[in-house]
């Protein structure tokens, strides 16, 4: 279980605002963070990964305190063991696909690398370097690499935003696969209503740094007339 109760000031295009999140996420949940640009979705992911420090609050993952402003605890990203997938995928250009994946392992295990290459259909690309891959291939390598570290928590920052529609549909399946292999919490930032309905077991809707709704996708979106009409339009 992941308990979050944090505050952090943010600078957005609309000026200074305060990110304020207080929630609990159950194990095995695939949760989507939904909201407009500047709502604080990426900042929240970065705070969970330890890449951004909140102004105050507390983060506890399965009885381990990751952050506590009162007790001055702030576990660095290296010791949180989260799999973070950036929007640009951040694959290391100097390493092959296989090396990118094995670099993530704490103890070298070639069999495990082979398993991940097969799982994400990357076997034929193992000796390729990232600049030569397509967007969809990069995304699969980034997912495989995030899994290779056997993370406690999988954080995906708009993993499908750089892809075209067909590729998005195909790769939603890969994300679900990654979540199931890991058998832990996955948090994913998304702007896409269809994506949320296909993947998420729950949703947190953020607006200007504040959680305005949370729950199952159908419940969250059907409460708002704005989203209800879009759901109907998309046949969701």
């Amino acid at each position: 279980m992941l308990k979050i109760d944090i505050q952090r000031s943010m600078l957005t295009s609309e000026g200074k605002t305060n990110l304020k999140v207080c929630t609990e996420i159950q194990s095995n949940e695939l949760l989507c963070l939904f909201g407009h640009s500047g709502a604080g979705k990426t900042t929240l992911l970065r705070i969970l990964a330890g890449l951004t420090t909140p102004d105050k609050g507390r983060i506890v993952f399965n009885d381990t305190v990751w952050y506590d402003s009162e007790k001055k605890i702030n576990v660095p990203p290296q010791r949180r063991n989260v799999g973070y997938m950036f929007q640009d995928y951040a694959l290391f250009p100097n390493m092959t696909v296989e090396k990118n994946i094995s670099f993530a392992q704490k103890e070298k295990d070639k069999e495990e690398v082979d398993k991940l290459l097969t799982l994400f259909d990357l076997g034929t690309l193992r000796n390729q370097h990232p600049p030569k891959l397509s967007g969809g291939q990069k995304q699969r390598v980034a997912l495989a690499r995030a899994l290779a570290a056997k993370p406690n928590l999988l954080l995906l920052d708009e993993p499908l935003s750089a892809l075209d529609f067909d590729m998005r549909l195909a790769l939603q399946h890969e994300i679900r696969k990654a979540h199931e292999v890991l058998n832990t919490i996955t948090l994913m930032v998304s702007h896409d209503l269809q994506e949320v309905f296909h993947l998420a077991s729950s949703v947190i809707m953020l607006r200007n740094g504040t959680v305005i709704k949370e729950g199952k996708p159908a419940d969250v979106f059907s409460q708002s007339t704005e989203w209800k009409s879009r759901m109907e339009y998309l046949g969701l």
Binding site: Y84, F86, F92, N94, K106, A149
Partner: peptide, 25 residues
């Protein structure tokens, strides 16, 4: 920046990140 940050989330120290990720790139 995401290269360094990815390496950190993968448990790599600043020194390992410097040697294995930054220098070769």
């Amino acid at each position: 920046k995401s290269f360094r940050e990815t390496a950190y989330t993968l448990g790599k120290s600043e020194f390992t990140t410097f040697i294995r990720v930054l220098i070769p790139n």
